[in-house]
């Protein structure tokens, strides 16, 4: 399955946030989307998942979703978006119930995704009892339960401390290596972008336009060992963004 963004432009009231953005997400590929704050990265992600409609342009799907995919376009949110009144397994079961998966079938799926995210011992815990990293693991387990074709990740590690972030990045790479998924990974963290992205889409300051698309031709699993090369890449990206980030920082918010 392939997602194509065709000349997307968007405005809120009189603020133009995106202008003429086109790129595609190919099967089994992670695309990192970076840009200064307020450049419309998250808006773009909401459009890919059908939670928002662009003022101009189209988001297209080509090809059928893989067999058994319950929710082809699945989000992972920065704030986890777990229901506080459901336990870990209840939060996973939430997204299965509407597909008629209950009882033994549901228990099997839940056990599988919790094992993959190393949460098997915590299935009866309440979200309030979990650390940030564990909460995001639950959200990842919930996303895996619906067998997504494309994961839409909106700053998934930004609410976590840096050590937890490292652990979760390793987990994501491990999950991807076992069963490659495609993903749009929105982040403002360049280190995450170069660790997880096969391609990196660099957006400009508002209104967001594509400044450059950088391809990283290095297998994900090899990247921790080749940090020096990644650091060079990351510095290049930062040089590209620096002035725009500084200018974006000095902008007044229109809220």
């Amino acid at each position: 399955m392939r997602i194509i963004l065709d000349r997307i432009s968007h405005s809120y009231a009189d603020t133009e946030v995106l202008r003429d953005v086109s790129f595609d997400l190919r099967a089994g590929e992670i695309v990192s989307i970076i840009g200064p704050s307020g450049c419309g990265k998250s808006t773009l992600l909401r459009m890919i998942g059908g939670l928002e409609q662009p003022t101009a342009g189209r988001v297209l799907i080509s090809g059928a979703a893989p067999e058994g995919s319950l929710n082809p376009l699945t989000y992972i949110f920065q704030d986890f978006a777990l229901l506080p009144w459901r336990t870990v397994q209840g939060n996973v079961s939430l997204v299965l119930e509407d597909h008629g998966i209950r009882g033994a079938a549901a228990r099997e799926v839940i056990a599988d995704v919790l094992a993959r995210t190393k949460l098997s011992d915590f299935r009866h815990a309440w979200p309030r009892q979990l650390s940030g990293g564990m909460k995001q693991r639950v959200a990842i387990a919930r996303a895996l339960a619906v067998r997504p074709a494309v994961m839409l990740m909106d700053e998934p590690l930004s609410a976590l401390d840096s050590q937890t972030r490292e652990l979760l990045m390793d987990d994501l790479v491990e999950l991807w290596t076992r069963t490659p998924f495609s993903a749009a990974y929105v982040t403002h963290n360049l280190a995450e972008a170069v660790r997880l992205g096969h391609r990196i889409v660099v957006l400009s300051r508002r209104p967001g336009r594509i400044r450059e698309v950088v391809a990283i031709d290095m297998p994900l699993a090899e990247r921790p060992a080749r940090m020096a090369e990644l650091a060079t890449l990351q510095r290049g990206l930062w040089e590209m963004m620096r002035d725009e980030a500084a200018a974006a920082d000095r902008e007044l918010t229109h809220a």
């Binding site: 319950l70 376009l73 989000y75 997204v95």
Partner: peptide
């Protein structure tokens, strides 16, 4: 939390759910 409602929509939950 509207974020939770968006989450429900993003997983294709029915309105009644």
């Amino acid at each position: 939390d509207r974020g939770l409602i968006r989450m429900g929509q993003s997983f294709g939950l029915k309105w009644t759910s």
